[in-house]
Amino acid sequence: MSDNIHQSLSHLMDNEADELELRRLLKACDEPDGNGLADTWHRYHLVRSVLHKEFEQEHLVDIADRISVALEQEPEPAKRRRLFEAWRLKASEISDTWMAKGAIAASVAAAVVMLLPNPSQDLPVAQKLTVQSTGYQQTLPARGLQQSPIGVQRVSAGANAAEGYRLIDNQRLRQEQLIRGYLLQHSEYVATNGTHGMMPMARVSGYQTLD
């Protein structure tokens, strides 16, 4: 395999691969020596996880087999593709203006939202995968210290959610502990010198949930 292919693979990892690269990669995977490429793909992910210090899992989950099985069971992929092509053709006709593009984006979003609620019924595989991959979650709290599972990311692979691995961002936890110290000192000053009596100390409770 050439360095070019590896570079494309790297682009795909960063979500920067263009359609050509994607096609070339998929084609390379199908070739007799394509197994090596799949392994490289796995290794790249492994390296990234380790570099980001996010790696604490027992084993990698390979869903490739499940996808192939699902593909085989898929009733009429050709018919669905035709439908999709027709839809795309129609869409491109009206996509001349930005407004129209916006409307299409909105309708695609709406379609996804409408399709998501019942994943078990007969959705095309691609959508099933979308549903499954929502198992990959980051449960970082939106506003920092307020709520409990601070700095804990839960990452899971579809049905294997329970066996997923947990990531603990020590750096972040430590920062939040430090901030609590400043908040506590300030609140103590306000409680003894402000107009509200001890009331401001109630603010501290939120900073303190994680000791």
Partner: peptide
């Protein structure tokens, strides 16, 4: 209204630059 300013020497494990808001309190 009250605010406090903390000044300390820069260290490797000091707080990172940034801003946070908890209700009425900002950091």
């Amino acid at each position: 209204s009250t605010f406090s300013v903390f000044v300390e020497p820069l260290r490797a494990d000091s707080l990172k630059e940034g801003q946070h808001q908890y209700g009425a309190t900002v950091v």
